[in-house]
Simulated scan of single mutants.
Amino acid sequence: MHYSSLAAVASDAKRSLSRGPVALILIEDDVEVASTIAYHSKAGFAHLVAFCAPEQTLPAELPENLHRADFNVSAEDALQTITNTMIKALPDHWLYYCYNAEYLFYPFCEDRSVGEMLGFMREERRDTVMSYVVDLYVKNLKDYPNGVDRDDAYFDKSGYYALAREDAEGVVLERQVDIFGGLRWRFEEHIAKARQRTDRVAFFRAQAGLKMLPDRSFNVAEYNTYACPWHNNLTASVCSFRTAKALRRNPGSRAVIDTFHWPQSEPFNWQSQQLLDLGLMESGQWF
């Protein structure tokens, strides 16, 4: 299905996206569009909605459950606009968002579907899955000047840290943290401060009155927590070339960064166990 606007897909959502979960994929450029769509299709989402400019070319072969919606994803607050519109359109649905050249990992994702994972989270009485963005990058920028190569991807195996999140009055917020690390930490002078965090509420259950805020947190405090009060919960990782792409696209950073590789770089093997072993996500009570 091809929709001419965000409003069009939202108005038809209850009919065409009646089953969940739904993946919202924001396509910013031509990099790894086909692999992003194929990867998330295999994960078990009931529907994928690709938001992209009208002139964007999508792969010829697309999964039957992919819907296209024309939208300027480079516009200011595009993510919040899309997310808040789809929250209203799909109450009680689980929604997930990512950009092209980003790939979802959760514990045991090689053998268990997204639906199975979210079923477990509902049993845990959780309406969100906290995730952490893991920056992917290439070692050889000479051969891959945009910083992207899925067959030879690296990531930082250490260098991540968390700070307790505070409200405007300096009061520490319960079970909320700001996470930093990866390329955004190592090259922070080239990254806007508002975009340096790597924590992301990638999955959330839509409900009446829920809104994504400008900092990508939600107006319901519990949605921003990494775990429930009584035990740790499952978390996920979004492995992403997006920061590498941005650092290579920006003339200022491109001129001074000749490699992303450093002593703590490790080849990415595209397996959830690698991320679990390094503490970049956890299985909680799910075995």
Rank of each mutant, 00 (worst) to 15 (best):
G20D: 13
G115E: 12
L24A: 03
T225M: 12
Y99D: 08
I179M: 13
R175N: 07
R254A: 13
S35W: 04
V49L: 05
V256P: 11
G147V: 03
G182W: 00
Y226V: 12
G159V: 10
E64C: 05
I191M: 14
Y226S: 12
H231E: 13
G284K: 07
T198L: 08
K88E: 13
V256L: 11
A60Y: 01
R197F: 06
R175Q: 12
F260N: 03
M121N: 08
V49I: 11
S237W: 04
G170L: 04
V148K: 02
Q207D: 11
G182R: 00
D152T: 09
L24P: 01
L280V: 08
A164L: 14
S113N: 06
K245H: 10
V133A: 04
M281Y: 03
N224W: 05
V171Y: 08
Y132A: 07
D143M: 06
S16E: 09
P214Q: 06
D77N: 15
P145E: 15
R197G: 14
Q196N: 10
V22A: 07
P107G: 05
Q196S: 06
A34I: 01
D167S: 06
R197E: 13
T259D: 09
M121H: 13
D156R: 05
C98T: 11
A244W: 09
V133H: 00
A23M: 09
P59H: 10
N72V: 09
P267M: 06
N72H: 11
I37V: 12
S240T: 12
Q176E: 15
S74C: 05
V49D: 00
A50Q: 00
L95N: 00
I37E: 01
A53D: 15
E64N: 09
Y96N: 13
A194V: 10
G284E: 09
L210S: 02
K88N: 08
Y226R: 07
I87Y: 00
A8M: 06
P145Q: 14
S217D: 09
R122H: 11
N233Y: 05
I27N: 00
E61Q: 15
D111Y: 11
P63D: 09
V238E: 05
R165L: 13
D215K: 09
S272T: 14
D156Q: 04
H2N: 15
A7Q: 14
V238L: 15
R175E: 05
R184S: 10
R122L: 15
K139T: 07
Q80G: 03
R205E: 04
Q207I: 01
M281A: 04
Y99M: 11
L247I: 12
F203M: 10
P263M: 07
C239W: 01
D92F: 00
M86C: 07
L234A: 02
L6A: 05
G284Q: 11
D151Y: 09
